[in-house]
Design a protein around this nucleic acid. Structure first.
Lengths: 190, 190
DNA sequence: AGGCTGACTTTGTGATCACAAATAACACAT
DNA sequence: ATGTGTTATTTGTGATCACAAAGTCAGCCT
């Protein structure tokens, strides 16, 4: 999810087991789970790698984000008090820092933390779980694309989100989210 | 997904293994996967049961269906030729039959087949996978609620869907889907 | 009759093993 | 140097086992 792995990277049961000092069995269960969620892909011969997404698939996942996340934000809006907005602003500050040192993993981590912090207020755990499934699928690809994204854009969208939250502006919030979610992924087409 | 199991039903690794004539290991992997998808729930002590959904959770899952499925139908619309519509009408006929003999599992099975057949045309596998995840979570609960739903309603919504498909009416299609998806689940509130 | 304590059973967990398939490495011939 | 056939290694799969925790049930006491 945080882009620690690049697309197409191979993982082995024994290798991951050794890394985390456990036997193959729990690793297998975890990997099966991640494969089921689309976070890892299973080749026809059973080998496990991080997914290499086609452009169509990336666009589809972006469309799903554009469907789910404005809804989550909209449901969080009535419960978003000042304390939450301040937390989001703090996270945004951290995003500025990781951008300054062009830390891809840090960027993805804090960016998702921003979104998750907001969506947790929506009181919609199933919907949030679906969104996280999508993030998981996009992780390696976003890491690969990180170099390509213009880094000044994202904080601007986040500021629009915060402004809409403060104003209680539901339509504006939905638009800001759709834009934030879509803008990053639109880069790849070029 | 088809409501063969009722909510709260316990499943054991050894039991399912014996039923399908395999050892615990592959059963464990399958169950882990289903737990990850929300289709089964894992108690704090590790026991596995079908989920017993709260009313809030049911409403949330219905809201997700109402978000995803109109989108899937809308994407399928431009590719929905007469052959597809005839297949959907045939499935609808089967639904009438299972309703006549009040066969809950058959109803759920054919109803989902109707939806899946339409959505397959959307060429959006990730979105369809999310929808199926939601169906999986709702399966046992829908079975339990089956007795409560009025059975004449669903075919009517399906006919509205077919009419919108024939007319190429995208807004009408989306509304028909939202209504079909929501109407069944609204019963429980009473 | 109801609640509690004890023993017994069931259950999931993590580890290890044998096996077969697939991949990688290597040597050889052209 | 490149393609090819063979060997060696890696890898996932399914099975089985020991163990600890949780659940179940019987019997007893109040």
């Amino acid at each position: 999810m945080h882009g620690e792995l690049l697309p197409g990277q191979a993982l082995t049961l024994r290798g991951v087991g050794k890394e985390y000092e456990m036997s193959m069995t729990p690793v297998r269960e975890a990997m099966r789970r991640l494969v089921a969620e689309g976070a890892l892909s299973l080749s026809s011969s059973g080998r496990i790698t991080t997914p290499e997404l086609s452009n169509e698939r990336i666009e589809e996942l972006a469309a799903i984000r554009a469907l789910l996340e404005p809804e989550l934000a909209s449901r969080a809006l009535p419960r978003a008090h000042m304390a939450l907005i301040e937390r989001l602003e703090a996270i945004n500050g951290q995003i500025d820092q990781v951008i300054a040192r062009s830390d891809a993993v840090g960027y993805l981590k804090h960016n998702l933390e921003f979104h998750r912090t907001l969506y947790l207020r929506a009181q919609a755990p199933a919907m949030l779980a679906l969104a996280e499934t999508v993030w998981l699928q996009l992780g390696p690809t976003m890491r690969k694309l990180y170099g390509r994204l213009r880094r000044t854009e994202s904080p601007r969208n986040h500021r629009l989100i915060l402004a809409a939250l403060k104003a209680g502006d539901d339509p504006g919030l939905r638009i800001a989210l759709r834009s934030d979610v879509t803008s990053g992924l639109r880069m790849l087409k070029q």
